[in-house]
Design a protein around this nucleic acid. Structure first.
Lengths: 226, 226
DNA sequence: TTTTAATTTTAGATTTGTCTAAATTTTATT
DNA sequence: AATAAAATTTAGACAAATCTAAAATTAAAA
């Protein structure tokens, strides 16, 4: 049986939601894919039949090993193509997502492994997300700066690299400290400034200079394995 | 209205048949696309509705200006990707067709124009077929097939019109590739097969089916006058 | 010029992915 | 625990692309 483009999109979205939110719901998946919950239910059944998903009606669902493998491979393709677009074709990092959404569905594995080699086996894509290797291993993320963080990913502040009192004052003022959970809501390519959101606080804007010096890591309270 | 992948494939096949055979029939198109004539008829109606085709039932059909433009753009994408696969990813020229069949449907025009620049605006793909420019201009090449070639005339292989991997493998096996100099030593009227000779190789026999699809032009190292 | 053959088209089904509206099940709130 | 609200699923429909079998049309042959 075949894994269509639509099925691939579902697998990928489920994987991402599983990473970010821990649990995945029919509604959340529908929102992520911009379809209706009823359509998601239909697709869940098909993915279950293909043993890519463990699913019982009304009881929730999650990827099988097979399903996760498929999802990671799609993510690998997406991120390698993004890297290619930015590093070889000179696209800006904020222009490449939609094109990579199409390219990620090209099926040839040989193509993607050769592309990987051509690009020098890059470790992460232009948004700072790690690129799975050809075995489907997704490297654990070490700490990275806010400037490299993808949109809408909830992380915890794990360090400040420039600890001047001016810097710390600014962070204090914005209720950002070690351990704070936050996410990037918007990126402004003009000056690389960021709008970030901390729970129970209004959004604030940080300059690229500040963002570069705020180190973050995956939110451990959400991190979920297997 | 959208031009789906299937529609793109129809447009491209019609264009190619128009070039090669002059006229295009429902049956020929079905054969080229590996579908049934009834399916072709269905699609012809849709393409007509989108003004990509001039079509009257039982009377034949041909591309409109719009349709031709769309077809040429797909061919441009196909050939640029083939060039990329061979020159940048080190694929052999007989391995790239199927992958390019997928890549040609990626829609971003910006992507393809940047790819073109990245590749140095190549004039022809790895099979020797000309690559249309971003304005859709397709250079004409005067070449003829091996089947039409007179005896004992030394020519250079300039293109292969049927690019299945089976065909390309056969040619590879016989040391025939783009640019190869060869001549016809003997013609067998019984089945129209040919004995051909490549320098430093023993003579080999090619079927009429193969000969028809090997395109050649005057040997440039001999024909130095304008 | 009939008759036969080949080509092309229609009619009606099927598959895949989607939708809306209604029904069901689960969760949350008095 | 009863009821209201939210989430999820089913039922039934639709569009796109394809198919088979039969009908219509054109082309070829006798």
């Amino acid at each position: 049986m075949k894994v269509s483009i639509s099925k691939e999109n579902h697998l990928k979205a489920i994987f991402h939601l599983q990473q970010e939110q821990g649990l995945v719901t029919t509604n959340a998946l529908a929102a992520a894919l911009n379809t209706r919950p009823a359509s998601v239910t239909d697709m869940l059944k098909k993915l279950k039949d293909q043993k890519l998903l463990i699913y019982e009606r009304y009881k929730g669902f999650k990827l099988t090993g097979e399903g996760r493998k498929a999802a990671v491979h799609i993510i690998r393709k997406h991120r390698l193509w993004e890297f290619f677009l930015v590093k070889k074709l000179q696209f800006r990092w904020d222009e490449v997502h939609d094109i990579a959404e199409e390219l990620e569905h090209i099926s040839s594995r040989e193509l993607i492994d050769r592309l990987d080699a051509f690009l020098g086996f890059p470790q992460s894509d232009p948004h700072g997300d790690p690129i799975p290797d050809s075995q489907g291993r997704l490297q654990i993320r070490r700490q990275l700066s806010l400037a490299e963080l993808p949109l809408n990913k909830i992380v915890q502040v794990s360090g400040i690299s420039t600890q001047t009192s001016e810097m710390l004052e600014l962070l204090q003022y914005n209720h950002i400290r070690l351990g704070t959970r936050l996410e990037i809501r918007k990126k402004f390519p003009f000056d690389n400034s960021l709008e970030i959101k901390v729970r129970n606080r209004p959004p604030v804007t940080l300059s690229a200079q500040v963002a570069k010096n705020v180190l973050v890591k995956d939110d451990e309270s959400l991190a979920e394995r297997r």
